[in-house]
Design a binder for these strands. Structure first.
Lengths: 337, 337
DNA sequence: TTCATTTTGTTAAACGTTTTTCTGAACAAT
DNA sequence: ATTGTTCAGAAAAACGTTTAACAAAATGAA
């Protein structure tokens, strides 16, 4: 059974004061008059009893609990792992705790989770919603809980921190084109998320700008796992024979690489590869992979920052912030010039 | 500002009953008599108002909140990442939420964190303590909060789920020895943790059993990061010229591998490598690495299971459970027979 | 009929806080 | 002497629950 913690009442008895006065003294900030001696007595008693305020009772009376929640689709994915770490670091530095939950990208689980979170009376929520996360978001908003969207935008006029997927894909593709690659295979995650569509469009924009015809490129989609990217890569390799791949997800990159290896092609001599995001093995591979590093930690920390500002400060208009990525040039793209 | 949720009182008004009766009805389990009609009225009103009980008020009255905390040294480390995932999956399946915190292996941060967690009134704590985590653990125990230790044991008679590091290292080393390796370099994390000492001893036990003399092996320790393992590997390579490495941490393995590569040695032709734990790149490398897979997910899920049992069921004697690992034979160890 | 028991429901106290309101002083100004 | 102001502190209500204790019917047994 849980041991009893010292309460205001205990202090009041020990210091021979009323509960109210003890509360006044301990909360300091107020402008109530308390004599020096009594104040000291209370402070001493509180120390002697090792008093810790009960945050539940405080929250019941309307005080903030300094408890935030962050909801992501998966822990395993290094991208979201970094988001969580970024958010945790910043939140902790401000004295907030973080409740971390994963939805497995299941709208149903997301819905249940979010409602439990609302009932848990967290102070604010950071969420990377599923593709049909509108209901969950509405639910949060309906409960009047401050919210910041991470990575995935949903609805209008809601604070959002993400990245400029269009620009990032555009830049990455341009990099490939500048190395004179023309037959490019785009392998991506089949998903209705706007982030994925933006990557597609960024890719197409670059291709178009370089005057490459549509039958010199091929776009293929698969589920977000290596087992799924493997076969379509094999197909593409056999039928289309690209000189380079643009991979739009770190989670499918290993399937692509394995398929290339199994086809006994060398990277980058026979085929070049650039990855949108950085799998953990990017620098362990031979050759090291050229990637587009994403601002994952920043999405987390900036998200937490924005949320805490909302909680503590003057309310501002909803912001939508798009961070950019940058190409980390390594050795998996061959220059055909 | 947070919107008001429907309360028992609201239901009472709507259903024309007293707050107490509403509570009786909604908590069902009790043996109070309530007429069918009134029960229906209450249930309907609750539904109409979309009533959600306020867990803070419930907890204040002594009810469980179904909120657990898990404290790990780092999120980044795949080993702990998997522990967290395992714990989260099990806890969620039982309707519990998980508060996840990282200590960065700093005893000071751990201490503060744990005290905040106690004050937050979580129902139970899963913790992989730092090497000097005794105080933190005592603090939790002192507050009477159910606790399960993960991976790292501290104190006596406390529930613990970890693995048999001795046996695992023994088995892994034996594997090397059976492939006729004799000059073996052991590269490990310099830490006073019992888990690390056990790995050392398991290694030495196997070496001894095979009658290998102490100057045929070398043990080196470093900080838990690749930058630190890199130079000592280089040294060992130059001075000692081992035929195989036993690496006792996934987090230092990449430094070792890089050093081997930079010395222009091939794995496994020139030197063999076995890793205690599985870095994410183990199967992406050429050759794929032979590893000893650790029961990381299981530690998390079994830990959560044990904790929840303690919370809900009859109290049992403290258990200490040691899970075993298993060798995943891949291609980084050469057979010298 | 009378008393005990069962059924149905209400009152009120409690959990640990915060905060409004109230009660007295002490002191000064009229 | 009366009124007003400033200080110092306490009492009490409130947050949303749970639950022990009570009250009043309805039912049954003697």
């Amino acid at each position: 059974m849980r041991k009893k913690q010292a309460t205001l009442k205990d202090i009041a008895v020990l210091a021979e004061a009323s509960v109210a006065t003890v509360s006044w003294v301990l909360n300091g900030n107020s402008r109530k008059y308390v004599s020096e001696q009594l104040r000291e007595r209370v402070l001493k008693a509180a120390k002697d009893l090792n008093y810790q305020p009960n945050p539940l009772a405080q929250r019941l009376k309307g005080k903030s609990r300094k408890l935030l929640a962050v909801v992501v689709p998966q822990f395993e994915n290094i991208f979201f792992n970094h988001i969580v770490i970024g958010a945790e670091k910043y939140a902790n530095s401000q004295g907030y705790r973080l409740l971390i939950c994963s939805t497995d990208d299941h709208p149903q689980k997301e819905w249940e989770l979010v409602n439990q979170l609302i009932a848990t009376w967290v102070d604010g929520i950071l969420i990377a919603p599923t593709y049909s996360g509108e209901d969950a978001v509405k639910s949060i908003l309906g409960a009047g809980i401050p919210l910041v969207l991470l990575d995935r935008r949903v609805g209008k006029n809601i604070d959002y921190i993400g990245m400029d997927n269009f620009q990032i894909a555009y830049t990455g593709t341009k990099y490939l084109l500048e190395q004179k690659h023309r037959r490019i295979g785009y392998i991506g995650w089949e998903s209705p998320l706007h982030t994925m569509l933006a990557r597609n469009q960024g890719f197409l924009k670059a291709v178009e700008e370089f005057g490459v015809s549509r039958d010199e490129i091929q776009i293929r989609k698969c589920a977000r796992n290596p087992e799924s990217s493997y076969p379509i890569t094999k197909e593409l390799l056999a039928d289309f024979k690209p000189t380079a791949f643009y991979i739009d997800q770190n989670t499918i990159a290993d399937g692509v690489v394995k398929a290339i290896r199994d086809a006994e092609l060398r990277i980058p001599e026979d085929i070049s590869v650039i990855i949108h995001g950085e799998p953990t093995w990017a620098v362990m591979n031979i050759p090291e992979f050229t990637c587009i590093a994403l601002p994952d930690f920043e999405i987390g920390s900036e998200g937490a920052k924005l949320l805490i500002e909302k909680l503590e400060g003057a309310s501002h208009k909803p912001k939508e912030i798009y961070l950019s990525g940058n190409i980390v040039e390594r050795a998996s793209v061959r220059n055909l010039n």
